[in-house]
């Protein structure tokens, strides 16, 4: 009996150790993004717009969308997330960060102190960003005004308030591979980059499972809104019959084919896309039209 107990304890300890190890953060190697030779802030601005960083990080109710003071709240079934201050303020924002720290946040979801970020910060998409785009984005963000507003804590329920557990979540759901595996021409590849890496359309338009992971096999097929208010429409061909031009026009003006006008969280996306070149709206439309119908379940 004593022996059995000892054995079971050993197994439990080993299992706990294994869980502890696989839940450890996996930062970029120190040599990557080590030297900051400076990027192109003008290119960075386009990436910033397409990636919608300001949509989440501008202060609530603020007219100045470029003051990245944080404070907007995102209710979910795990509790409420609050966007932090990512302005270049050295203490309250990320002004004291290196390019390496910034790349680690976007490409690995890991903080400078080596802790996991919650995927409410959609690094699950940004993980697919081109290295040069990270460099240019960083050089642009550093030109923005600083805010001295302190970042507010999240209000999460146990056990979701334990960041270490996110390591397991990442093992399950952090997947850098493209969802649309083949993209033949240049336009479609650009569209895929915009949709799957920068503009993170899937974070809203793809249903999630019980642990909040995106169901890649139901990609962009719509689902309940994460904050519990209504449904987010599907973009797959079984549900969306809009033409290529209709989709591009919607991203530019917010008008649907019957001239209703977009609302809710889609408005920030459209405000961003209206400021991008027409070719980018065109590329996203090409991607949406290339989507397969979701598999029947």
């Amino acid at each position: 009996m004593r022996r059995l107990f000892g054995f079971l304890l050993l197994v439990a300890l080993l299992a706990a150790g294994a869980v502890w190890m696989i839940s450890a953060p996996d930062p970029l190697p120190a040599a990557e993004f080590a030297a900051d030779a400076g990027g192109d802030p003008a290119r960075g601005q386009t990436i910033f717009t397409a990636a919608g960083c300001a949509s989440c990080h501008h202060a609530p109710e603020s007219e100045d969308k470029l003051l990245l003071a944080g404070g907007q709240r995102f209710p979910s079934e795990f509790g409420t997330f609050t966007a932090p201050n990512i302005s270049p303020h050295p203490q309250q924002g990320i002004g004291a960060w290196s390019l390496h720290d910034f790349a680690n946040a976007l490409l690995r979801g890991v903080s400078p102190e080596g802790r996991h970020y919650y995927p409410a910060f959609p690094y699950t998409s940004y993980i697919r960003m081109e290295p040069q785009d990270v460099v240019d984005l960083w050089s642009y963000i550093r030109t923005l005004p600083a805010s001295d507003a302190a970042s507010q804590p999240h209000g999460l329920r146990f056990p979701f308030n334990l960041r270490r557990g996110l390591g397991l979540w990442k093992q399950l759901y952090l997947e850098p591979a493209w969802v649309l595996a083949s993209a033949e021409d240049e336009t479609l590849r650009r569209g895929r980059y915009l949709v799957e890496a920068l503009a993170h359309c899937g974070e809203c338009h793809t249903p999630r499972d019980a642990l909040g992971g995106l169901q890649r096999d139901a990609w962009l097929s719509g689902g309940p809104a994460p904050d519990g208010t209504g449904r987010i429409p599907a973009l797959t061909p079984d549900a969306l019959s809009w033409s290529h031009e209709d989709i591009a026009y919607y991203l530019e003006t917010g008008f649907t084919p019957d001239y209703d006008s977009a609302g809710g969280h889609m408005v920030e996306v459209i405000d961003n896309f209206a400021r991008l070149p027409a070719e980018d709206r065109d590329a996203v439309a090409a991607y949406v039209k290339a989507l397969p119908a979701p598999a029947p379940d």
Partner: peptide
């Protein structure tokens, strides 16, 4: 001009109209 007008529709739907 339509872009301007669309902006006015969106600005209101953004805050005051619930999703379907």
């Amino acid at each position: 001009a339509l872009g301007q007008l669309g902006g006015a529709c969106k600005a209101c739907h953004d805050t005051f109209r619930a999703p379907e």
